[in-house]
Amino acid sequence: DVEPGKFYKGVVTRIEKYGAFINLNEQVRGLLRPRDMISLRLENLNVGDEIIVQAIDVRPEKREIDFKYIP
């Protein structure tokens, strides 16, 4: 289970104008929005990159997770 405030290693699987989709595993995916990136820009991410993200909002009923990147 993903818990708000905890850090997780994930893989960038898709990049859109509104953010990057990060997979923690095959069943768990969330969104990293540009506003939640500190010292990292969306255009510097590539599909396949491994990054450490912090879960900031977890909505299991909608199967949605918002992430934050903190270097």
Rank of each mutant, 00 (worst) to 15 (best):
Y69L: 05
P71V: 07
L31G: 01
R63S: 13
I51K: 00
D1T: 14
I56K: 12
N25K: 06
S39W: 11
E16P: 02
I15Q: 01
I70H: 10
Q27P: 04
E61P: 07
Y8N: 00
I52R: 10
K6S: 09
F21K: 03
N23P: 00
R63K: 15
P34I: 12
N44T: 10
G19F: 05
I51F: 04
E61R: 05
G5Y: 08
E43V: 11
V11T: 14
I51H: 01
R63P: 08
K17T: 13
D57V: 12
V47T: 07
R41V: 11
R35G: 12
L40M: 11
I56H: 08
G10H: 02
V12P: 00
V2C: 04
L45F: 04
K17S: 13
N44E: 15
F67Y: 02
V53C: 04
K17N: 13
Q54V: 12
I56Y: 15
V28Q: 10
N46C: 11
D57F: 12
P71L: 06
S39Q: 15
V2H: 04
N46R: 15
G48I: 02
R63M: 14
F21L: 10
R59T: 05
G48H: 06
Y18R: 06
Y69V: 05
I15F: 02
A20R: 00
I65K: 02
Q27L: 14
V53Q: 00
V11L: 11
I38F: 11
L32N: 00
V58P: 05
K68D: 02
R14N: 06
N23C: 08
I56A: 08
E16H: 10
D49T: 08
E3I: 15
K9Y: 11
L42G: 03
Y18P: 01
E61Y: 09
I22H: 01
L40V: 08
G30A: 03
L32H: 01
G10L: 03
I65S: 02
D66F: 12
V28E: 07
N25S: 15
K68Q: 11
K6Y: 10
R33C: 03
V2A: 05
N46M: 15
V53P: 00
K6M: 11
E3M: 14
V53I: 08
L40F: 07
E64M: 11
R14A: 12
G30C: 03
D1Y: 14
E3S: 12
G5E: 05
S39D: 15
L32Y: 02
E26Y: 14
V58Q: 04
R29C: 09
G10S: 02
L24Y: 02
I15R: 04
R33P: 01
A20V: 09
E50R: 14
A20S: 03
Y69E: 07
F21Q: 04
A20M: 03
K68V: 08
Y8P: 00
D57H: 14
T13V: 11
M37S: 05
F7I: 08
G30E: 01
I51W: 01
Y18I: 08
F21I: 12
R14V: 08
D1S: 14
